[in-house]
Amino acid sequence: MPETASAKVKTAIFISGGGTNMAALLYASRLPNSAYEVVLVASNVPDASGLGLAAAEGVGTFARSHQGMSRPDHDAVMEQAARDAGAECIILAGYMRILTPEFTERWQGRMLNIHPSLLPKYRGLETHKRAIEAGDKVHGASVHLVSSELDAGEVLGQIEVRITQGDTPETLADRVKIAEHQLYPRVVNEYLGRANDPEHLLQKIRDLALALPGTHERESHGSPGWRVGTEKSGKYFAHFNDQHHGSEHIALLVKTDSMDELLGLVETHPHAYFKPAYYGASGWIGVILNRSGVEWDHVADWLERSWRNVAPRQFTKLHDAADQF
């Protein structure tokens, strides 16, 4: 059965222990309007108690000890388990392993972590102790994208926790953990929910379209559109469809080479393409954006192909020359 336009993002959670943040994420995923579902809980510690909780809740689990394995080999095993489960995003929740740069690069923008400090302060370990010794008045937690540099990815959200007189690293850690359970599910849901946010999707399309030579934006029939050429004589190569003309989709409309191609794509990939009611008769196809698994390199390829269909030679030559460097 084809996935629906509002399909939830399939998510794998990696843990190394009790999995309290994993539990918070799992239960939050079952609330109304959650943007994600947990399809796997995996661990490098086979007897991690969090695995039992996940199994009791009907979530698939996987475990493989890192003992006796190289870091790249263990990363590969964990990554394959996530892929086998259909995961589109990996969330680290107390996963006490430093991942290889190659692993993090493959999941760039699709791997999140939570760190017990107000980043960029106190990367690494012993964050509670370091905050107290520094005389800080507030401490907290940060959710960030995972990058090849430890605890250095883009911060997506933070929460502050007051440091009180007499706090020890242990008492402070207890309160920060409670705060983490509030922060992590909310930030994950907001971040993954952008797949259905028209403003977010429009901005991504706008950035890709306007990066092509000779392009400008102009509204067409009440929707954003992009043309190549002069303001007076430019030709449209893309339109943004936000559930217009009776469509349920948020989509990019681009030119195909023929009606046969359009109909063939719609028939074989109905979860990814549709024939627009207004533009379809002219050979325009809708590339559905508000669905899980969108490959943005593929969207960019469609934009460039449609742009080439109408762009004056002077602009395509400029683009081809730039590609040589």
Rank of each mutant, 00 (worst) to 15 (best):
E3T: 11
K8T: 07
T11M: 11
A12I: 02
I15H: 04
A28C: 07
A28V: 02
P32V: 15
N33A: 15
N44V: 11
D47G: 10
A48I: 13
L53V: 12
L53P: 01
A56W: 00
M69K: 13
S70Y: 01
R71Q: 01
A76E: 13
M78H: 10
A81M: 01
A87M: 13
T100W: 06
E102A: 10
E105R: 15
R106C: 07
W107V: 00
N113F: 00
Y122A: 06
G124P: 02
L125C: 10
R130S: 08
G135T: 12
D136Y: 11
L145D: 00
S147Q: 11
E154L: 11
E160N: 13
I163D: 04
T164P: 00
Q165E: 14
L172E: 00
I178T: 13
A179G: 03
A179Q: 12
Q182N: 05
V188Y: 00
Y191S: 06
Y191M: 00
L192N: 04
P198E: 01
L201M: 06
K204V: 10
L208H: 05
L208S: 08
G222I: 04
G225N: 06
S233F: 15
N241H: 03
E248H: 15
H249Q: 05
K255W: 10
D257Q: 13
M259K: 15
L262R: 12
L263N: 15
E267C: 10
H269F: 12
Y273F: 13
G280K: 00
G280E: 07
A281L: 07
W284H: 06
V287S: 03
N290H: 11
W307R: 02
R308S: 10
F315Q: 06
Q324N: 10
F325D: 03
